[in-house]
Design a protein around this nucleic acid. Structure first.
Length: 574
RNA sequence: GCGCCCUUAGCUCAGUUGGAUAGAGCAAUAGCCUUCUAAGCUAUGGGUCGGUGGUUCGAAUCCACCAGGGCGCGCCA
């Protein structure tokens, strides 16, 4: 049983608070904002002083006196209006580091059981290649999945394919126009590229020509009515495009337990609508079927959810509610997290409210983890020079190519490709996960692949250097020994490693992978400093070398774990 | 019109339950490779946290108003 450093300190603080007759909710330590004064600080005394009718500094002093006698602390001081400054003892730090290092499975990350969590991300549309708009949902969604997984939470990821609706009708009718002689129920020979341009052209034609749009609607209706020929062509289209999309998923390292789509819940819809009608939840309005989701006591306007068009056709929202129903029936998760563009916030609010009214979400916490857009240098959503949405594979390919150019001359040819891919993808992912989910960011290819400073490759590089030391140590027969914390850079590094459990817990609570990115960069910085200040193999004594080797191993374990949470893998060399 | 989000260093962005002197990277300047990978390390300069008022021991953070920007708002997804 390895309690994290902060957890152990929190317990000591809570004991001291209680001994002074104070509530213990705020008896928590955080990283010191002024490292020259302390390792950790506690701000929890000040808010309590007023309620207790006591002077905050006196209260803090009483706690400091009690704590200062413990072996875990070298010094406990009071500063300013009542900050508690904690300086940890070298022995305690060494003990915590050893405990964390021995936890090979979790690196100290606290395991929790919050019930099954379903993650909905990716969401590619059939016959449309993944584009820049899919980058964030895949990168953030996968990171959240890994963060939960690292906490021991059971997860189920589903990409929720856009494989139904009018877009399919557009495609089917477009194919019929282009290949009038094609036997019904068969797909003409199309290359992947043909398929990719088919949809944009079909959509444009439908927008421009009402007759084309009518044909698309008719084809949609036929497919939804179960026309066997339409179904055969559709399912072939779906298979081919999913193959290409799966390659992009694999390249990005996005893992899906389920590859379900909108089409999978269509059979549920008629029954669902009948049920909602019967119970008076769905009502007619202007010819369409809606669900009122506004509450009377609420000032904020909340438009109703449109459940079916006046012609009876199902909509995006219909499918989303039905998907919720299906997930409830088949998996009964405790939570569903939708990693979808922030611009769809209102849509999800409506879907969630409708599902709750219908009782389809009982016992399920529904969360829309929205994200901001990827923007070009002009601050507007990223476009290619031709004005189209850039394809995801092009974007990633570009980063990988630039990474390849940066590789040292000495890199063996056999490794170049793998290495460039690891480094290029790390650059893209780290840049994406560095800013908070809901804020958009400017995708500046030049900056991102410079690989200097606060980048994925910087962190990978730190990790590679650790590996290099450990490999050399092994070849020299030097082995790790007990950890002793003496040099300032060693102390800082141990403290940084010890933060991992807190950071993971917080990132999970806030669904914020950027907290992990912040952390892993700080850890890499901390190691880089240690690297330049503390010789390992050339340490003064065997004991010092052994301790530093152990520190290197601990740091690598923590760093690799943190990078894994971001979906970033570490090469052997770079 | 209504609603939601945003505004922090020249640029791109962080900023935990309100906490001490608001941080990082890039760019700029000055150093550091006969020692474990210089994709690195060290140091310096750079700020009216959009504006005004309020809440309190304390506000980038909470509240109100104002200015500027983005996004969304029943028969698309």
């Amino acid at each position: 049983m390895t309690a994290s450093l902060t957890r152990r300190v929190d317990e000591l603080l809570a004991g001291a608070f209680a001994a002074c007759g104070l509530p213990t909710e705020t008896a928590r330590a955080s990283r010191a904002s002024r490292p020259e004064l302390a390792d950790l600080q506690c701000n929890g005394v000040m808010p309590l002083a007023k309620a207790a009718g006591r002077n905050p500094r006196e209260l803090a002093a009483a706690i400091a006196t009690a704590l200062g006698e413990r072996a875990e602390f070298d010094e406990v001081g009071v500063a300013g209006p009542g900050f508690l400054n904690l300086r940890l003892s070298a022995g305690f730090l060494a003990e915590c580091a050893a405990a964390q290092a021995s936890d090979h499975a979790h690196a100290g990350i606290e395991q929790v059981d919050t019930g099954l969590v379903m993650l909905d991300f990716g969401g590619p549309n059939v016959a449309k290649p993944l584009h820049v708009g899919h980058l964030r949902t895949l990168v953030i969604g996968e990171s959240l999945r890994r963060i939960l997984d690292a906490q021991g939470v059971r997860t189920l990821s589903d990409t929720h394919l856009g494989d139904w609706g009018l877009q399919m009708g557009m495609l089917l009718s477009e194919l019929r126009l282009r290949f009038p002689d094609q036997p019904p129920g068969t797909l003409p020979p199309l290359t992947e590229h043909d398929l990719q341009v088919l949809y944009p052209e079909a959509a444009a034609a439908c927008r421009a020509d009402p007759a084309r749009m009518d044909a698309a609607r008719a084809a949609t209706a036929a497919l939804q009515a179960g026309d066997p020929d339409a179904y055969k062509v559709w399912s072939e289209l779906r298979r081919i495009s999913l193959e290409a999309q799966t390659r992009d998923f694999d390249l990005l390292g996005a893992h899906f337990d389920l590859l379900l789509g909108e089409s999978d819940v269509q059979p549920l819809i008629p029954g669902m609508i009948a049920d909602l009608r019967e119970r008076g939840i769905a009502v007619e309005s202007e010819g369409a079927l809606i669900v009122e989701v506004a509450t009377p006591d609420e000032a904020k306007p909340m438009p109703p959810l449109l459940l079916a068009k006046s012609d009876g056709a199902a909509l995006y929202a219909t499918t989303d509610v039905a998907t919720l129903l299906a997930r409830k029936r088949e998996h009964d998760p405790a939570r569903i997290i939708y990693v979808v563009d922030q611009r769809q916030a209102l849509h999800f609010e409506q879907v969630f409210r409708a599902a709750r009214r219908a009782g389809y979400a009982d016992g399920i916490e529904l969360i829309h983890a929205g994200y901001g857009t990827v923007n070009g240098p002009d601050g507007k959503p990223y476009k290619t020079r031709e004005g189209n949405a850039a394809q995801l594979s092009d974007l990633l390919g570009d980063a990988i190519e630039r990474a390849a150019e940066r590789l040292p001359e000495t890199t063996p040819d056999a490794e170049r490709e793998t290495l460039a891919r690891l480094v290029g993808l790390a650059a893209v992912k780290f840049a994406d996960l560095s800013s908070f989910r809901t804020s958009g960011y400017i995708f500046d290819a030049e900056r991102m692949v410079s690989f200097e400073g606060r980048t994925g490759p910087y962190v990978q590089y730190a990790c590679v250097r650790i590996g290099s030391i450990l490999a050399k140590a092994a070849s020299q027969g030097a082995s790790a020994g007990p950890i002793a914390v003496t040099a300032p850079a060693e102390r800082a590094l141990v403290l940084e490693c010890a933060r991992l459990p807190d950071v993971v817990a917080s990132a999970s609570r806030n669904l914020a992978p950027n907290e992990i990115a912040d952390y892993v960069f700080a850890l890499a910085q901390s190691f880089s400093r240690f690297y330049s200040e503390c010789p390992v193999l050339a340490a003064d004594t065997d004991a010092e070398r052994g301790s530093r080797l152990a520190l290197c191993a601990l740091t690598r374990m923590v760093m690799e774990k943190a990078l894994w949470l971001l979906g970033i893998a570490v090469p052997e060399r770079m």
